[in-house]
Measured scan of single mutants.
Amino acid sequence: MFYPNSPQTSPQLTQIPYGQQYAMMQRQIQQPYHPFATTEPQARLYPYHYQGPIQQEQGGFITQQSTAASPQYVQMRVTPVDQSIMSGYPNQTANGSSSSSFNYNIHPQQQQQQQQQQQQLRHHAMPVGSVPLQDDRYRKQLIVNYLAPDVTSTDLHELFSRFGELDGARIIYDKQTNMSKGYGFVYFCHAEDAKEAVERMSGYEFHGKWLKVGYSTNPLNIVPSNSSPYVHAGSRGAAG
């Protein structure tokens, strides 16, 4: 039997160049792979992502010199942007860049009308829970959420009447099932009393439920100042 490094198959040491006398086997001759043993700084910083320098080929596509990437890492192929796409944008300079302001050559009167329309939209648009300043009635009506099913309009009136005089209180019921929808409205005579009720009743436990109280901004629920107070009856038909 002959071994790869046996004296019968191995040459004389004098015939082997210096430095390879003890590297006779194939696994010894093959050098191990060192990912950080390279002179390129990109490979030292990113050993798993770097795959060699990027070269520009004919046709405008950018390719990489090395083989496919590892399945664990996804390499994105980048193509140059066609400058003709950006030619339609206004205020574009000769080098292809555009300024931040756009001039669509709008007539001054049209621009003024658009600004007025935007101001009107901001004036009428009102986020949930906010209180408008032009109508004091919005500051007097509250919406009470997360009410228990057994709470009546009379219970709601008695709960909030300790903060001040009320114009009314009612629970909203479903017309088909005649069941409470879980929320109601309270109408105060003074805005200061309503503000105190919002601050003190939010998070209050009532009939096993934690109440959420806020201003009601729905104009359909506003009680006119010259109208008669609501009837605080315990029956659902009268309260709904």
Rank of each mutant, 00 (worst) to 15 (best):
A69P: 05
F102S: 03
S98T: 13
Q31P: 14
Q141D: 00
M24S: 01
H190R: 10
V223D: 02
Y230M: 09
D155M: 15
A233G: 11
Q176I: 00
G214P: 13
Q134I: 02
L220I: 14
Q72W: 14
S97P: 04
S6K: 01
P53E: 06
N221E: 02
Q72P: 01
K140L: 09
Q115W: 08
A194G: 06
A37P: 06
Q118H: 13
I62H: 01
A94L: 08
M179Y: 14
D155V: 11
V74W: 09
L220D: 02
P17L: 14
G96S: 03
S66R: 05
A191R: 02
R200Y: 12
R44T: 14
H157Q: 15
W210S: 06
S66C: 06
Q115A: 11
I62Y: 14
G96N: 13
F206N: 01
M201K: 00
T63D: 00
Q28K: 07
N95Y: 13
K181Q: 00
N145T: 01
F102E: 13
G52E: 11
Q141I: 08
M25I: 11
F36C: 14
Q120V: 02
Y89R: 06
N178S: 05
H157G: 04
Y230C: 01
P4E: 06
A23E: 08
Y18L: 07
Q58H: 03
I62D: 06
P11V: 08
A194T: 06
F61M: 00
P224N: 11
Q75G: 07
T63P: 07
V144G: 10
L211Q: 00
A197H: 04
P4Q: 03
G240S: 05
F61D: 01
P41M: 15
P132I: 15
S235H: 10
Q55E: 08
L13T: 06
Y187R: 00
S130G: 14
G203M: 13
I172K: 05
L211N: 02
N5W: 08
S87I: 01
G240T: 08
G164F: 02
G208T: 05
N221W: 13
I62E: 14
Q119W: 12
P108F: 06
E199Q: 15
Q110V: 12
Q65F: 09
G203V: 02
A125P: 10
A191K: 10
G184Q: 09
S84F: 15
E40H: 00
T177H: 15
R122P: 07
T152H: 04
S216M: 13
Y104P: 12
Y73L: 04
T67K: 09
T63V: 09
Y3R: 09
G168I: 02
A233H: 15
Q114W: 05
H34I: 00
Q21G: 13
M126C: 12
G88D: 00
Q12M: 15
I85C: 10
G240C: 08
D150E: 02
T39G: 02
G168E: 01
Q116F: 01
Q120I: 14
T14P: 08
S101I: 12
P132E: 14
P47S: 10
Y73H: 13
Q119P: 09
S70H: 03
V231R: 11
G214N: 12
Q92L: 07
V144N: 08
Y104T: 13
E165P: 10
T63R: 05
R139C: 14
S153M: 01
S228E: 15
V198Q: 02
M201I: 07
L159Q: 14
H190S: 11
K195V: 06
G214S: 07
H123M: 15
S153L: 01
M25R: 09
H157K: 10
S180V: 09
Q8D: 14
G96F: 14
M179E: 14
G88F: 15
Q12I: 01
Y183Q: 12
F206R: 04
S228K: 06
G240L: 07
S228V: 10
Y183F: 00
D136A: 07
Y138S: 13
Y18R: 11
T217H: 06
A125W: 05
G234P: 05
